[in-house]
């Protein structure tokens, strides 16, 4: 495999400026990064550092003011809304801190949604959803509503929903943020297992130390810039600190 084929996401000088009244807020000041296929990348940074903004750019959820984001060599800024929707549906799976399940839909109906949007019939989509729910250990909770299962199980449903279209990339925004220690560990393990089994690239925005120990690469964002990029083995995880830096 050529080195270029090994790169799934490339960002070049990604800048984001928000206009708040008369004031300009520079959320991102030019971040260039390459994400390797099958990599587990964690984006780390304190509140207001631009971490979430950068995460949204990489996920095709927001457009940069300047610079570019490419997924599989395809520049997201040049795509129209329908092409972006196709990318979000087929190439990416999203996992949110507060799970973002549709409360009026059962587990299987929630997981079936991306396949329905991809053009599959609801019956076939539900069959595929049931399979993937079984894979994440929720084969016995297919017809439960989100409010009827625990937080950890809700996040498993969200992971199943993110995986159901077999995307190349999973984007997880603080996936353990609303979970207790033990459940958080289970979710990290599940993500790591899925990454290994399905060969997907996992990108997380996180504060969670446990998440970092599963990461292949960690990017520290500070004041809208990539302060440091470290590959596995180049950073040490200790209680309360990473590589000497206190967690924000």
């Amino acid at each position: 495999m050529k080195p270029a084929d090994d790169i799934i996401i490339t960002t070049r000088d990604v800048t984001k400026v928000y206009q708040l009244g008369a004031e300009q807020v520079h959320a991102l000041r030019g971040i260039s990064l390459e994400v390797r296929r099958g990599e587990y990348l964690s984006i780390l940074g304190p509140s207001g550092s631009g971490k979430s903004t950068f995460f949204n750019m990489v996920g095709g959820l927001d457009r940069p003011s300047a610079g570019s984001v490419s997924v599989d060599g395809c520049n997201l800024q040049e795509l129209n809304q329908k092409q972006l929707a196709w990318i979000r549906c087929h190439k990416m799976g999203y996992i949110f801190q507060s799970f973002n399940l549709i409360q009026t839909m059962t587990a299987v109906e929630n997981v079936a949604l991306p396949r329905i949007f991809a053009g599959e019939s609801p019956a076939k989509a539900r069959a595929a959803a049931a399979e993937i729910l079984d894979l994440v250990g929720l084969g016995h909770r297919l017809t439960h509503l989100p409010a009827q299962v625990s937080g950890g199980q809700q996040q498993r449903i969200a992971i199943a929903r993110a995986l159901v279209n077999r995307p190349g990339i999973i984007l997880a925004d603080e996936p353990t943020g609303n979970l207790d220690l033990h459940t958080g560990e289970e979710i990290i393990q599940l993500l790591a297992d899925m990454k290994k089994q399905l060969g997907i690239t996992v990108i997380t925005a996180t504060h969670d130390m446990k998440m970092l120990s599963a990461s292949d690469t960690v990017v520290w964002i500070k004041d809208g810039r990539a302060d440091r990029v470290a590959r596995k083995g180049e950073f040490e995880v200790a209680i309360g600190t990473i590589d000497g830096k206190t967690l924000a």
Partner: peptide, 25 residues
Amino acid sequence: MSNAVIPEQRQVSWAVSFQVSWAGI
């Protein structure tokens, strides 16, 4: 992959939209 080969997402039919919306209603 170049931008030209990225297909456009297709709209789901009214019937399917109704089925999906019905759960919420």
